[in-house]
């Protein structure tokens, strides 16, 4: 008898977090059409993020940014064989219910869209589809995990092509984890209160020496060197939004960022893949953006 017992446990946390583990060491690319999605898949993307406008355009256009048209998302799901993610507004659990009914592989409760709730995020335990959420620091990451997020990404500042905020947020998370590991157990109670995170998760992070779920970098990554920088800072993989399809040669740049994410410790390969990539996206320095237009501050 070599058969199983036939009981299938779907949508367990292990299964939700497990897909993110399979994405590790990879690049997740923002795409707005089925053609973009195919270019991303051909370049070696591990997943695509289906959306109507990349963050640089959301920034430029202004107005309210919402979940994308299901027709567009379904078209992208049909076009590629790799996992497809899509974004919902912070707190907009009905947009999440709609994405769940479409069968997307991951939902990004994203600050890039206009928040629908200024106090509460979605209770992500209620869903069978796993969620990824943004964070600027350890406390925010653990609040999202407590709400059911199965994957975390540092926020950076989306749509800028400026990596400085991605670095700030990754250093903040990694630095806090290092600090936590030097703390005495009785200090964890006060530290949990200070960072606004559940004690049990703080304790778990101290024991593991890392977040209990996969952590990617996002927001401002535009070059192979940016991707390798984030990997060397200790993230598990990268999201690239506007950086690819707002550049001069998206297919070539996408493939180069994939290679840089794998060979992030090999400077000779990084030099090779960085050659002749054409124009990068036109960046916008984060320090030139007024406080009220900064996306990363959305989320509670």
């Amino acid at each position: 008898m070599t058969e199983g017992n036939g009981n299938k446990d779907v949508a367990s946390f292990k299964v939700k977090a497990g897909l993110a583990q399979m994405l590790k060491g990879g690049v997740i690319m923002d795409v707005v059409t089925a053609e973009h999605a195919k270019i991303a898949e051909d370049a070696g993307a591990v997943a695509v993020m289906a959306l109507e406008r990349v963050p640089a355009d959301i920034r430029a256009d202004g107005g309210v940014a919402r979940m994308s048209d299901p027709e567009l998302i379904l078209g992208i799901m049909d076009a590629v064989s790799i996992p497809v993610m899509a974004k919902v507004r912070i707190g907009h659990f009905v947009e999440a219910q709609i994405l769940e009914s479409l069968g997307v592989d991951y939902i990004d409760e994203s600050e890039v869209l206009t928040p629908a709730d200024e106090a509460h995020h979605i209770n992500k335990h209620d869903f069978k589809i796993p969620f990824v959420c943004g964070c600027r620091n350890l406390g925010e990451a653990l609040r999202r995990i407590a709400e059911g997020a199965a994957m975390i990404r540092t926020k950076g500042e989306a749509g800028t092509g400026d990596v400085v905020e991605a670095v700030r947020h990754a250093r903040s998370v990694m630095g806090s984890i290092r600090k936590l590991q030097t703390m005495a157990d009785e200090e964890l109670f006060t530290y949990s209160k200070e960072i606004g995170a559940p004690y049990d998760l703080v304790k778990q992070v101290k024991e593991l020496g890392r977040l209990p779920v996969v952590n990617f970098a996002a927001g401002g990554i535009a070059t192979p060197a940016d991707a390798a920088l984030m990997m060397q800072l200790g993230v598990d993989g990268v999201f690239v939004g506007s950086g690819i399809f707002k550049s001069g040669n998206p297919a070539k740049r996408a493939a180069a960022i994939v290679k840089a994410t794998t060979h992030y410790l090999d400077a000779a390969i990084l030099a090779e893949v960085s050659r002749n990539l054409g124009e990068p996206m036109v960046g916008r320095q984060v320090t030139d953006i007024p406080e009220e237009e900064r996306i990363a501050d959305r989320g509670w």
Partner: peptide, 14 residues
């Protein structure tokens, strides 16, 4: 199928 069809189960492996 897609992620929504991912699962855990117990297998007998002689």
């Amino acid at each position: 199928g897609r992620q929504v069809d991912s699962f855990e189960t117990a297998l007998n492996v002689p």
